[in-house]
Simulated scan of single mutants.
Amino acid sequence: MRLTFSRTGRLLVAAGLVSLLAACNSAGRSTQYTSLEGYVPDPTLKTATKTNLTGRVRHACTVTQARFQKVPEDALAAPCGCYAERTLSTLDKDEIASYRTTGYFNDSARAKALNALDSCKLPRPV
Rank of each mutant, 00 (worst) to 15 (best):
A109I: 07
C24P: 00
K93C: 01
A116N: 01
T102N: 15
R124E: 15
N25V: 05
A66M: 02
C24V: 09
V71G: 01
Y104W: 15
C24L: 11
C61F: 06
G38N: 15
P123N: 13
S108A: 13
Q32T: 07
R124G: 10
S119G: 03
V18L: 15
A27S: 12
A66E: 04
S98I: 05
F105R: 09
K50F: 07
Y33Q: 10
S35Q: 15
E37S: 09
N106M: 02
T90V: 03
T102M: 14
F5M: 07
S30F: 06
A22W: 11
A116Y: 02
K46T: 13
L76E: 05
L88V: 09
L76M: 05
C120L: 03
K93G: 02
S89K: 12
E85N: 11
S98R: 06
L21S: 12
A97H: 09
L91G: 06
C61K: 07
T44L: 11
A14H: 14
P43I: 09
D94W: 04
A84D: 05
K93Y: 07
D107F: 03
L20E: 01
A75H: 02
R67G: 10
P72K: 11
E95A: 09
C82T: 09
C80N: 04
A113M: 02
L3R: 01
T8Q: 14
V40I: 15
T64A: 14
P41G: 04
F68T: 02
A78W: 00
L91C: 06
T51K: 14
T87M: 09
Y33E: 10
R7V: 11
Y33I: 06
S6W: 08
P72Q: 06
R86F: 03
A60W: 08
K121R: 12
C61Q: 03
S35W: 13
D107G: 06
V18Q: 06
F5N: 01
K121H: 10
G28R: 11
R86D: 13
S26P: 00
V13E: 04
L117F: 04
N25A: 12
L122T: 12
A27P: 02
L114A: 03
C82I: 10
I96G: 12
S26A: 10
T4Q: 00
A60V: 10
A109W: 02
C120P: 03
L88C: 04
K46L: 13
N115Y: 04
L11D: 05
P125C: 07
L91T: 07
T47Y: 03
L12F: 13
Y99W: 10
T62S: 13
R86T: 13
D74N: 09
Y99P: 04
S119C: 03
V63G: 02
L11E: 09
G55T: 11
A113G: 08
G38A: 10
T54P: 00
Y99V: 03
G81P: 05
T102L: 15
D74K: 09
R58W: 04
A78Q: 08
T47C: 00
T62L: 10
N25F: 10
A77H: 07
R58L: 10
Y83V: 01
T34W: 12
E95F: 05
A23H: 11
D92S: 08
G81E: 06
Q65W: 05
G103H: 01
Y83L: 08
T8N: 09
G38T: 12
A22P: 06
G103A: 08
A78L: 03
G81M: 03
L88G: 03
S19E: 01
S26R: 11
L12Q: 13
R2I: 07
R100F: 13
Q32R: 15
L12I: 13
